[in-house]
Nucleic acid binder design. Structure first.
Lengths: 256, 256
DNA sequence: TCGTATATGTGCGTTAGGGCACAGACGGTC
DNA sequence: GACCGTCTGTGCCCTAACGCACATATACGA
């Protein structure tokens, strides 16, 4: 449902950056699907069957150890793609890909996607650029998770999520956050309490609202800025087409 | 100096995996240079001018925060290449690339390398595969650094270094190790003491010897095995040519 | 052979965060 | 409205690791 208003465009930025002709060629292979909260797109060991270009919502890439704790290593929103391993010529990953903020995505069969990449053109170039961005994000998260205290990491995480969701309110439990930050739930509770005391967020049973983004930035470590720099790697508008037409994209019935 | 004995071949595995014809084409652009201990190949913000294919020795990729502590996020030996950002279409990185074990490498101008990659062929395919391996390594290190105690991480690091150096003895100070592991030097000291008490390593002023690799594996977390799995991503021998001829490769005088 | 720079051992107080054990509190459901 | 499952708040103890402050030991050069 494209709207004429200058609003949040529900578009994947990677696809939007393609030359029109290339984008047109992809359309028949793209299928619009909902990203349902907590849905797992792939797990370690799975054969990755599809790649996903989120148009709204976010997908977290989590790494884990011995079925214990997990840690978020990457965050994919409309600036990216889920399924980078496919692009790299591998069809499994050690990571989990989990929907962390509901939305929707354009899905493409891994095989078709591979062929498209082999055809040359802009897609592989954009994806390489994106992969670099992802690599940077993962590196910086690694440092951040090693050196920075829980409240700073929480603040960073909230800001990153806000940027990708383009919303100040999201559904999430402390349990969930603890899996992202790689800390215990109680630690999240304490950190969230701190932020709440300073009126930076408000937090009630599964719903969190950012009240003061600037304040959060002050608490967050500089990792936020660094990662944000990489997140904004694509110029906001390439060419004239900002909102690719969705005409012709098959829509899938809402089926989890 | 190729030797006929079945010994450690001083060859970069990525290059060795290229079809002969492609490798031949690269030769004029490759320049053999020594990797000198602690030499910095690039730093955050630097324009990356060359890519390096180590044939022996190791290069560490370090990430840092606010000029304080650093943390190793990746380790590159003969199985890989230093300068992946160039392959990704970017000429800077947030990481430091530092020689961590002396050896040598084949160097290639970034511009030439880019052109070679654009020509298609096996090189970009191999590099994508390698990048996936690096991504996995970085993710897993992130988890490891978050959850595992210093001694396990130290053991893992030593094993990884051994695998890439193909030697049981290396030069390194506790200070250096602390930058790799993202801990304090004193912590390294304690952990190294532990390993030494169990006769797994011997450690004297800047020189460390692995005495009992199996013992180290027992101490190390399973991250070692996981990362090793990815490290061995290239089959040991592709085609007949295991040792590409170095004839024709310019050798650079020893000049740091 | 002596000094000096550099590396290593160690000790002690402090602290962030893990582990565990609950006690509310809210929200949906029957 | 009563129940129950799920989330949230808290407290207490404990440990790993930090920060700092030294004492020592080794290599190397004058």
């Amino acid at each position: 449902m494209p709207n004429t208003k200058e609003r949040i465009s529900p578009t994947n930025k990677l696809l939007a950056a393609l030359p029109r002709r290339e984008y047109q060629r992809l359309i028949p292979s793209l299928e619009e699907i909902p990203l349902i909260f907590e849905k797992v797109l792939y797990e370690p060991g799975d054969s990755i069957l599809d790649v996903y270009f989120p148009t709204s919502g976010i997908v977290s890439l989590l790494a884990g150890v011995e079925d214990r704790a997990t840690l978020e290593v990457g965050l994919v929103g409309r600036e990216g793609m889920v399924g980078v391993p496919i692009f790299m010529g591998v069809n499994t990953s050690l990571n989990h890909a989990v929907v962390q903020g509901a939305g929707s995505a354009l899905r493409m069969k891994a095989g078709v996607f591979r062929k498209e990449c082999d055809n040359g053109g802009s897609l592989p170039r954009l994806l390489r650029r994106y992969t670099h961005s992802l690599l940077t994000q993962i590196s910086q998260s690694a440092v951040c998770n090693r050196f920075h205290p829980v409240d700073a990491r929480l603040a960073r995480w909230l800001l990153m999520t806000r940027d990708r969701m383009q919303a100040d309110e999201f559904q999430l439990t402390q349990e969930f956050l603890s899996n992202m930050l790689g800390t215990r739930r109680e630690g999240v509770n304490k950190a969230a309490g701190l932020l709440q005391d300073q009126h930076l967020i408000s937090y009630t049973r599964g719903a969190l609202t950012i009240l003061n983004g600037a304040g959060l930035e002050a608490i967050a470590c500089q990792c936020y800025g660094i990662i944000k720099g990489e997140y904004d790697y694509l110029p906001p508008a390439i060419g004239a087409r900002q909102v690719p037409s969705l005409v012709g994209i098959k829509s899938q019935p809402y089926a989890p």
